[in-house]
Amino acid sequence: MEETARKVDEERQLVVFSLYGEEFGLEITKVREIVKPREITKLPNVVDFVEGVTNLRGEVIPIIDLKKRFGVQATEMTDDSRIINVDISNNQVGLVVDDVTEVLRIAQGDIDPPPRTIAGLKAEYIQGIGKIEERLLILLDVDKILSSEEQIELQAEVLSEELAGTANA
């Protein structure tokens, strides 16, 4: 496993954001920019977590509501809401999150391998759990969350059900 092979003293830089009260971390190299919510054009015939598309510097990019992706009850966007524009295999995708709180460094040694499920998320979407004093950060693997269109289109229904089930439990 690549993750465990990393040197313990290696540092990783993470963008930290919150989603339904949990704290998540995203590898900073995956993040292109963070923008405020903007006009989103809805799309017909797409799964519910695809919010639509928006114009970011002339590019039309899809917007994913992460809460809906994880099968959690979606809420209206607030002033704190942000769109994190991430690079997924050379495609830009905007992720809607509740708030972006900080960018921090974490030593590889402070990251534990993921448990089987956590906060209703399947462990395969999680790179690990970061511990910073009292706080626990869920390190998301964006490539795996939206790795292919099939995954978005086909497994969406199933996953949402599964995730909803575990989240409630």
């Binding site: 799309l43 017909p44 598309v53 039309v60 899809p62 495609n91 830009q92 269109e149 978005i152």
Partner: peptide, 19 residues
């Protein structure tokens, strides 16, 4: 005409987008 992201696949009824 701008194409929609390949992440979205083909969307029935939508040929693309424009700004």
């Amino acid at each position: 005409i701008k194409s929609l992201s390949s992440m979205l696949g083909d969307i029935q009824g939508v040929a693309g987008a424009t700004v």
